[in-house]
Write a protein that binds this DNA or RNA. Structure first.
Lengths: 110, 110
DNA sequence: CGCCATTACTTTGCCAGGCTATGTATATGC
DNA sequence: GCATATACATAGCCTGGCAAAGTAATGGCG
């Protein structure tokens, strides 16, 4: 898997995962891996900076919580984050339609 | 359209377009735009360097040709290029499946 | 005939954002 | 005690898309 493909998608995936219920970095990684059936292993060096960017952009807010004797930084979607997620969803849809328009053409590949 | 999404796809799109019949930079741009229905406007600063990379990797070969009083550098797929294209096709399929596994989940979006 | 748009290729340099690697800290198990 | 898993953070590398600028030839228009 060429990780370059992930460019620009990491934030979208985070927004999506957090949109279901607040989550924290370590768990977001695992969720991404599970829900993509092993396709995406978000690396710490991509994940945490992305979370910080999203928070700076006010698409996420964070709060620390103690559970299982673990200190965790939970992130939850803001209203703006919800809107951004919807926009990114549409963007992904357009993008993949565009790619399929090229890759799929004259191949019956669908 | 977040152009970051294109990361890593430009080469694949070029391989695909050239696979039908040899083409040259300017025409590849137009083909990409048409076949993606205006989604992708490959920029010169991405296109030409990508063509050169692909040639260095021996996935494409080039030849100059004069037509319509225009000097054009045509590129055609090599056997290795054909294999690479198939691999990238599969990669794209996996990637988009992975993304849809996350974005599509619990939304019936498909 | 001069000027500009279009076609056509190339290259420089910027910058976003993925990754590796490293560092910190705590809990649990052996 | 020490290794491993959990958990967060950051510095620095490197890829590759983009804007912008340069080169050049063609053809149309006034």
């Amino acid at each position: 898997m060429d990780t370059r493909l992930l460019m620009g998608m990491v934030e979208t995936l985070i927004l999506e995962i957090v949109s279901h219920s607040p989550s924290y970095g370590y768990e977001i990684c695992q969720t991404a891996e599970e829900r993509s059936r092993g396709m995406f292993e978000l690396k710490e060096g991509s994940l945490y900076p992305a979370l910080h960017r999203l928070e700076r952009q006010k698409l996420l807010t964070s709060f620390w919580e103690e559970a299982d004797n673990r200190r965790r930084k939970y992130y939850k979607l803001t209203a703006a984050g919800q809107k951004a997620l919807e926009a990114r969803r549409r963007e992904w849809h357009q993008f993949s339609t565009g790619v399929n328009g090229i890759l799929g053409a004259a191949h019956g590949t669908a």
